[in-house]
């Protein structure tokens, strides 16, 4: 490692300016819960060839204490969450619990309470791990991400377009996730999140699923389903959603629709689970969540 300096910008514009010059090889840090273990692995790992020095990060730019990137509120009928808001703050916030229960549950399932006091939602997205727990919840909520950079200014993109490949996003060099917007639909939208891991705390998901459904009695008016840890990127199960639309849901319908999840997932074998098990669990969890939401007691 050859980290040369640490910058704690005073405002968003300062931060973007600090990230704008690629020659300084900036490394963005927020909560640090992903970056710091990665740095440790590099330090403990094989010494790198001398020529690689130019690619290594030089200046650490800390976004975690920027007030402009923190906090939760309502804006124009949307729920606005600053990207440097911690998972703990999101999980505990009454407005999130009330209006975006799947996101609140997803944030509450990340790591441990200690990790959640550091880890940020923006970091969870920008790191773009396929198993990022907040990603399926934000996919199911049809969230919009506000991006910012010195060169391109501000732009808003749909979370559906954000993940472009394994640990790759739309973010350009020097660009950050600044905020997240969740549309607050007026209908009866119910959200749920479920995570399957090896233990309840400090587990990386082997499958995680978020579902939002707008129901008219037992008839599904609209459904959005996000899944994590079952493909190179977090995915929407559009085929399942389309099959559910305007159907009266019972157990058989839910199970039939859930089978379509396989059109969207391509899980791998790793130390946490086999691909076959992940496929089976993904279908089973999607079916169970639809049944619970449409057919069981109102939440």
């Amino acid at each position: 490692m050859s980290l040369q300096s640490y910058v704690r910008p005073r405002g968003l514009d300062d931060a973007l300016a600090a990230l704008a010059d690629p020659r300084t090889r900036p490394l963005i840090i927020a909560g640090g819960t992903d970056v710091i273990p990665a740095m440790r692995k590099m330090r403990l790992g094989e010494p790198q060839a001398a020529g690689d020095d130019d690619d290594r990060p030089g200046v650490v730019v800390d976004l975690s204490q920027l007030d402009e990137l923190r906090g939760i509120g309502e804006k124009d009928g949307m729920l606005l969450i600053g990207a440097a808001t911690t998972m703990g703050a999101i999980a505990r916030h009454e407005l999130v619990k009330d209006r975006a229960p799947a996101l609140a549950a997803a944030a509450a399932s990340v790591g441990s309470p200690l990790v959640r006091n550091r880890a940020t939602v923006g970091g969870n997205l920008a790191t773009a791990s396929p198993s990022a727990d907040t990603a399926p919840a934000l996919l199911a909520a049809n969230a919009v991400l506000g991006l910012a950079s010195a060169r391109q200014g501000r732009r808003e993109v749909s979370i559906t377009d954000f993940f472009v490949g394994y640990r790759r996003t739309l973010l350009q060099p020097g660009e950050i996730v600044a905020y997240i917007l969740l549309p607050l639909s007026r209908g009866l939208v119910r959200g749920r999140f479920e995570k399957v891991g090896l233990r309840n705390a400090d587990a990386i998901s082997m499958v995680c699923v978020a579902v939002e459904m707008e129901l008219d009695g037992r008839v599904c008016r609209e459904a959005r389903i996000g899944l994590g840890a079952v493909a190179a990127v977090p995915v929407r199960a559009f085929a399942v959603e389309a099959a559910l639309k305007d159907r009266e849901i019972d157990e058989a319908v839910a199970r039939e629709c859930a089978k379509l999840v396989h059109e969207h997932i391509s899980p791998i074998d790793d130390l946490r689970a086999s691909a076959r098990y992940r496929s089976w669990v993904a279908e089973a969890v999607v079916a169970r969540m639809i049944i619970d939401m449409a057919c069981k007691a109102r939440s």
């Binding site: 640490y6 704690r8 840090i29 909560g31 640090g32 819960t33 710091i36 273990p37 650490v60 800390d62 975690s64 204490q65 703990g88 309470p113 200690l114 990790v115 006091n117 550091r118």
Partner: peptide, 17 residues
């Protein structure tokens, strides 16, 4: 850290300045 329980191994010392 400012009252919140955190892993000090997942925090840079410079972040605690």
């Amino acid at each position: 850290l400012d009252g919140d329980a955190v892993n000090s191994c997942l925090t840079l010392a410079v972040q605690a300045d």
